[in-house]
Design a protein around this nucleic acid. Sequence first.
DNA 1: GTCCAACTGCAACTTTTATGCCAATACTGT
DNA 2: ACAGTATTGGCATAAAAGTTGCAGTTGGAC
Lengths: 227, 227
Amino acid sequence: MDKGKVLIVEQQNGSPSSISKVLEEEGYNVISVEDSDNVYDLTVNEKPEIVMLDLDSLEQEGWEVCRKLKDDYEARRSVVIMVSSKEDEESIVRGFESGADDFITRPFGRKEFTARIRAIIRRIEKNESKKIKVKDIEIDLDEHKVKKGGKPIDLTYIQFKLLYLLASRRENVFSRKEILEKVWGRKVYVTNRTVDVHIKRLREKLGEYKYPSQYIETIHGTGYRFL
Amino acid sequence: MDKGKVLIVEQQNGSPSSISKVLEEEGYNVISVEDSDNVYDLTVNEKPEIVMLDLDSLEQEGWEVCRKLKDDYEARRSVVIMVSSKEDEESIVRGFESGADDFITRPFGRKEFTARIRAIIRRIEKNESKKIKVKDIEIDLDEHKVKKGGKPIDLTYIQFKLLYLLASRRENVFSRKEILEKVWGRKVYVTNRTVDVHIKRLREKLGEYKYPSQYIETIHGTGYRFL
DNA sequence: GTCCAACTGCAACTTTTATGCCAATACTGT
DNA sequence: ACAGTATTGGCATAAAAGTTGCAGTTGGAC
């Protein structure tokens, strides 16, 4: 059950209706912190899909953290949601001006809350399409098939996921860490070298024997990129 | 002034505070229709960034239109926002379940409303990979690519980080200490001289052979800066 | 159940590439 | 001109990536 990673900044009062608890129960991978000190570092390292800032416990810092995240080229990818009891327009506008992507005011029903989160995650993942064509390669997610020049290529489960990931955002460089998270899942511990091995096997099946690779490029010190 | 294209479905009552009026005034490219018949076609053809559905005038149809858009391969790209006076949780949840990306309840202040819209547009733009352009140099972070005058330049990991650091705040003078911290990280101990070496290698790759350097300026006794 | 083939992950090893430092040299500002 | 800085090419070394063989698993086929 891996719905996405959420970094939450709020005072823990142990209430079972706290945001963290709710999202954990819903199956999100929750990282919870009580103050804003590590938020930036955590965001950069963990790349959560969502960062939630509880303004009721953060106050002034909330805006600042948000701005800092949105000014950073890596952290900015995470969606920042502010949660607050204040519903005066000024606070809300200020939240958005700090770069927040959404602003939710308390109180809110659990169902509404989780529906909003789902909508946001959905939106993030939607950029990926079901069928991808790159050069002479065709990838069909639904049928789980890959063709090269019209001829089917037999890929294993992992190879397929790996190829799909890389091809879903061609030109984008994926670090091994990212690959591990997206292909193997967050909890699994697998060596970096194993990623290489799978890349090699994939390259073989794609018919890459000589250098430089036509499809999967290695970016030394960084990761891999398709095309 | 083109802030983005918005397709709005609402009953026109001529009120100056109607959504269409407000967004027009704000400089959006507004397409306004009164019923849901053409919404699907318009969305596919016009590809608006945002489709706003006024549930107060659409009722039942609202959900259906939304679902139809979100089931469509092309139309799903547009962000769908529902606007409604009903603020019961059930309606809202149902909205999200129909695939809506956001749900705004009336009444709302104009500033808050426009701030939300701006945030959404911002988010859409952010998905496109971010580039820094300085003179004839282009730096693409997601793709980890650098181009000079359209031609790609191959940089190593450190060179890339270094260039990015300098270029991200041009004119700013970076001391070697600062560079070490940002590129190598706090803990690592590496000589100041090493920074020089990397500057040299970077300059070479940027095609700097003669003095004074066109891109990276040396501030004697202080550090470096990107022009 | 037993056998077999396919898949996977890892360790050990090789190859490739990048990095850090040195020492000689050139440049700066005073 | 001098002392402090910066530049540079070369080189040993470190680090990253590629490769290979093997062993543990799994899931049929029989």
